[in-house]
């Protein structure tokens, strides 16, 4: 618990950020920070199964993209006033965040249920590849989905509506994302402390033993997979709002790779790891790209070095400095 104070500091800084930058003509920073938080959310969702459950999903972009598309499609129908379906009863589109976002989570969660139920029969490298295969299927599905722009993607007319909030305002959107991120982090910290989380980590460390103890490990893993998919869907719903645009590029396999990088960079199975990972990854890209168009030739070796020499991720590098004892205990 001693390492809570740097977190409080980070939270404070995050709360103050829009006001600080507003005075410095740096309002665009709010947008970058929002994007970082959204990627962190996607990372957190992947971390649940990857870091705590030991399931390396190489197709998490499928859930992310599906969430984005649900928001995009509903919003398009609302804009043009065309019903989504007329049978068995008429269902129209919506721009209401309170409807569209939970639906995005539901759709991504359902997809995760199907993909997870089939994929979890395999393990190890087979699991990595089968999740990739399913994600590719979804990718090609959206590429050829002519009605919603296919590869060209879908431009949103406006961001979702959320009660008294004006999400079109970057600052208000930023605070909403920050609040959601905090909420998810809080819920996840409870989840992994709860019996469910302990069982999940037990399965990660030794599945055979947990099975021998009588735990239905398959079911535990599947539930974690579905929760993770739904959370990725939420992140997708947010990115659709952030960019006011959705396209299959959100589901392409390098995107799944980015998510893994974010999780591992930040530190697998560290609650706040994906935050550090997302910030580092996106800022690194930003800084390197501003420096040279050949930025990938630097980013690549950095990844290799991090894997070789910083196994616990950046979070451990930071937190480890601050409270070495704790990092040693759960590392």
């Amino acid at each position: 618990m001693r390492d809570l104070w740097p977190l409080a500091l980070v939270l404070l800084a995050a709360l103050a950020l829009p006001f600080v930058v507003a005075g410095m003509d740096l309002a665009y920073v709010v947008g970058i920070a929002t994007r970082i938080m959204i990627y962190a959310l996607a990372g957190i969702s992947l971390n649940l199964i990857l870091g705590y459950g030991g399931m390396v999903s190489f197709g998490h972009a499928a859930f992310f993209g599906t969430g984005a598309y649900v928001v995009g499609i509903l919003s398009t129908h609302a804009t043009y006033g065309e019903p989504l379906t007329t049978w068995p009863f008429e269902v129209g589109g919506t721009e209401q965040a309170l409807i569209a976002w939970p639906l995005a989570m539901l759709a991504a969660g359902l997809l995760a249920l199907v993909i997870g139920a089939l994929s979890l029969r395999t393990a190890g490298l087979y699991f990595i590849m089968i999740t990739l295969a399913f994600a590719q299927m979804i990718f090609f599905f959206f590429v050829s989905l002519q009605a919603y722009g296919g590869e060209d993607g879908l431009s949103l007319f406006a961001r979702s509506q959320a009660g008294p909030l004006d999400l079109g305002d970057d600052r208000q959107f930023y605070y909403l994302v920050l609040a959601l991120l905090a909420l998810v982090l809080f819920l996840k910290s409870r989840l992994i402390e709860a019996r469910f989380g302990r069982v999940l980590q037990g399965i990660r460390d030794n599945e055979r033993r947990m099975r021998a103890l009588g735990y239905p490990t398959y079911r535990y893993k599947l539930v974690a997979f579905v929760i993770s998919g739904a959370l990725a869907g939420l992140a997708g719903a947010l990115i659709a709002n952030q960019t006011e645009f959705v396209s299959p590029a959100f589901l392409d396999w390098p995107r799944s790779g980015d998510f893994i990088v974010i999780v591992v960079l930040g530190g697998m199975g560290r609650l706040y790891g994906p935050l550090a990972g997302a910030a580092l990854f996106l800022l690194l890209e930003e800084v390197l790209a501003a420096w040279t168009e050949h930025w990938m030739i630097i980013l690549g070796p950095i990844l290799v070095l991090l894997v070789l020499y910083a196994r616990g991720g950046v979070w451990d590098l930071i937190a480890g400095r601050l409270s070495r004892r704790k990092a040693g205990a759960d590392g």
Partner: peptide, 23 residues
């Protein structure tokens, strides 16, 4: 190392090689 570390490090190598060849 486990497969995850391998995937990640060799993903880094892909970026490196693509850019190297382009240069």
């Amino acid at each position: 190392r486990d497969h995850l570390d391998q995937v990640l490090a060799t993903f880094g190598l892909i970026l490196f090689f693509n850019e190297l060849v382009r240069i």
